[in-house]
Structures are given as C-alpha cells and as structure tokens.
Amino acid sequence: MIRLAQLALLARLSGKVIRWQPLLGAFLLTAVVLAWPHDEPLTWKGTVWSLRVIAVLVTLAVVFVLDDVAAEVLAPVPVPLAARTGLRLGFALLCVTPVWGVSLLVLAPGMPAVWIWWSTVELAGLLAAGLAGAATLATRYGMREPGVAAAPGVVGGWLLLFVLPGPVAMFTLRPQDWTAAHLRWSLLLVAGLAVLIRMSRDPARR
C-alpha cells in the first residue's frame, strides 16, 4: 500500500523533473491565438477552428510530461508505475484545465453552445490518444523521452483527420454530422484511456 509520505515525496520530485517548457510554450502560443487581431469578427466556424488549434497545441505539450529523463532521481521512491504516471498527469491537468477554461470563455460567445461540449470532447480525445502513444513508447519500448517521438505522431494524426472521407470524418462542421463525428471522438477517447491505463500498470500486473 502506498504511504502518504511516499506520494508526497514523489510529487515533489516529479514536479522538479517534469518538462515544463513545452507546457509554457503551448500556453504562450494559446495566448497568441486568443489575442490574434482579426480584420473582421470570427465566424462561429473560425472560432471552432481556433479551439482546435489550441487543443492540438496543448496536446503536443502534454505528451512531454511522461518523459523520464531523471528516472534515477525517482527510483528511490518505491511506488507503482500507475501512481507515478497519475501524478504526472495530474500536474498536466492542473495546468491544462484553466487554460482551456479561459479559451472557452474568450471564444465561446461566438459559437453555438453545443460546441463548448463538442470542442472539449475533441480536446479530451486528442489528449488521451497522445498520452496513450507516449505511455506505450515509454513502457513497451523503454523510451526515456517518449514525448520527442509522440509529438510528431500527434501532429501526423491530427493532419490525418483532415483527409478522412465523409462517412468517417472527424473534423466536420455540418450540423447533420456533429453527433456521428463526436461519437467517433468519444471512441478515440475511450480507446486512448484504455491504452493509457494498461500502459500505466506495472508489467507483472498486465
């Protein structure tokens, strides 16, 4: 059983070794997207695309939280892999949640209310998929810096979504396709979480 003292020590050490630079960079770029001057007010479609850009920026940054370049620093803390991963994800979510909330507050007035939910589902799907990829690289392939490889995968996957044909389109703005498209986003979210949870378990328990 994990002791509170062990978790506190791990949290302190994890906070010191996590790569914060990508998160800070993503937040600065998000501020640029939010403050970008437009000659004309954004349409609701332009607002949705601004949120999509912010979502991929945030995802690109978050995949780096699983980098373990200082594994020898954390090794003396005998806690399960799931706890170590969970703490890192917790740090990331504490940073991402207010940034996404501010983005919605700034941009939401210009789009249909349903897109507050849809855009958040898209963000969650991207985060789950990106983190699942990083966790797989770290756990199955022993990479100390999975974010370096996962980040290009996030960009490639995001671009791939643009070319998906109509019946399986993910980036759609047609009202008749919203529900079906975001059902697929939800499936991506569930699949990503399943892989992330599996890759966050110690090998003997898989």
Rank of each mutant, 00 (worst) to 15 (best):
A61Q: 14
R84D: 15
A83R: 15
A71L: 01
G90M: 03
P80D: 13
P76L: 09
R84K: 14
A92D: 08
P78D: 13
V62Y: 03
L66A: 02
P76H: 04
L51K: 05
I54C: 08
L51A: 08
L57V: 03
E72M: 08
T85E: 07
I54R: 07
L66G: 09
A92Q: 06
R88E: 04
G90S: 04
L89R: 00
G46N: 10
D67C: 08
A82P: 12
L89M: 02
T85W: 07
L81A: 12
D39S: 05
A92K: 14
P76Q: 08
V65D: 06
L87P: 11
V63H: 09
T59W: 05
T43P: 01
P41I: 08
T85K: 02
V65Y: 02
L51Y: 00
A61I: 05
V65L: 03
A75H: 14
F64Y: 15
L42V: 10
A70C: 10
L87E: 03
W44R: 00
L57I: 02
V48D: 12
A71W: 07
V53S: 02
V56N: 06
L42P: 00
L51V: 13
G86Y: 03
L87C: 04
R52V: 06
P78N: 15
V77Y: 12
P78R: 01
T59I: 06
A82V: 15
P80F: 12
V56R: 10
D67R: 12
V63Q: 07
T59V: 06
K45Y: 12
S50N: 12
